[in-house]
């Protein structure tokens, strides 16, 4: 798969989880939801998991994926501590 295609599907997948942050879905479910083949999705999910954007629950093709919220440090006072 070309880098352009990988990037495009990765962004699609990311936007899907961003807009549905409570979704838990496996590869097959995501393939149906996004209209992408399993072959296309596998490397994308691998990359998003590597970046900690998605959390993988389980192993292999049976694994489920959910959005992993970034670390939030609410209100931080920066300037007084400098």
């Amino acid at each position: 798969m070309s880098q352009a295609r990988l990037l495009s599907i990765q962004a699609e997948c990311l936007l899907f989880f961003e807009q549905n942050p409570y979704t838990i879905e496996n590869e097959e479910g995501l393939s149906i939801r996004l209209g992408r083949s399993l072959q296309d999705l596998s490397p994308v999910l691998e990359r998003l998991t590597e970046l900690s954007i998605l959390q993988r629950l389980g192993v292999g093709h049976e694994a489920y994926y959910k959005y992993n919220q970034p670390d939030v440090s609410g209100e931080v006072l920066l300037w007084e501590n400098i």
Partner: peptide, 18 residues
């Protein structure tokens, strides 16, 4: 990070991977 209006030095901080 995004500063909070009217609160100098105060920011909202969001990180991933650090």
């Amino acid at each position: 990070m995004v500063s909070k209006p009217q609160e100098p030095g105060m920011v909202e901080l969001v990180t991933r991977g650090f």
